[in-house]
Computed example of a mutant assay.
Amino acid sequence: MMTVQIEVGDTALIVNISGGTMFTTLRKRIEIPYNFIEEVQVGNFKFPLTAIKRTGITTMGYKAGIFIIDKKKYFLSYHDANKVAILGLKEFEFDRIVIENEDPEQLVKNILMRCSHINN
């Protein structure tokens, strides 16, 4: 069950959060203006043992919430670390956002189409 829905809006990427993830992260939505996105990639995210949980949940099969990894602030939401989009952000509340998507390649293409400032 996905508790995060991604909307590719005209001026911003909107992450809508529901269910248990909403309670563990204490938020319903993260709106990321495209000009804050520095990089975007389809990933195979390796969750480090050194991650510090701020709010959220970590189980063998699920990671969601706000974590500090290598002194950077991450928002994570995924079951399958091989089906995630990884966003690198600048001057934003989070340094990285890692979210699972059924079609991460298409999501990344859709974001890149709106981020002409990113050189791929």
Rank of each mutant, 00 (worst) to 15 (best):
T21W: 05
H79P: 01
E105K: 13
N16F: 12
T55E: 11
D10P: 04
E102Y: 03
K83G: 03
G20N: 09
I69G: 03
N101F: 05
L13S: 02
T11F: 14
N44G: 04
L107R: 00
E105P: 02
A51E: 05
I14H: 08
I32W: 00
M1Y: 07
L89P: 05
V4F: 04
V4W: 01
E7R: 05
V108R: 01
T21S: 15
N16A: 12
I57D: 05
I57L: 13
P104E: 04
I99C: 02
V108Q: 03
H117V: 09
D70S: 15
N44C: 04
V98Y: 03
R114K: 15
V84D: 02
A81N: 13
D70Y: 05
L49K: 12
P104Y: 00
Y78D: 01
I17S: 08
I118R: 10
I30F: 08
R29T: 12
K53Y: 08
I57Y: 08
F36Y: 12
G88Q: 15
Y62W: 13
N16V: 09
M60A: 15
R27C: 09
V15C: 05
Q41V: 06
Q106S: 02
T3V: 09
M113I: 11
G65R: 13
F47E: 04
K46V: 12
V40G: 01
I57P: 02
I30N: 06
N44E: 10
T24Q: 05
S18H: 08
K53H: 06
E31P: 01
I97W: 00
F94T: 06
C115S: 08
V108N: 00
I99L: 07
E39K: 14
V98N: 02
E31C: 08
N101R: 01
V8M: 05
I32Y: 00
L87Q: 03
Q5K: 14
A81V: 01
H117K: 11
G88W: 08
I97P: 03
L49R: 11
A12N: 13
F47N: 04
N101W: 03
T58A: 15
G20C: 05
L13D: 04
F94W: 06
R27L: 13
F45S: 01
L13K: 02
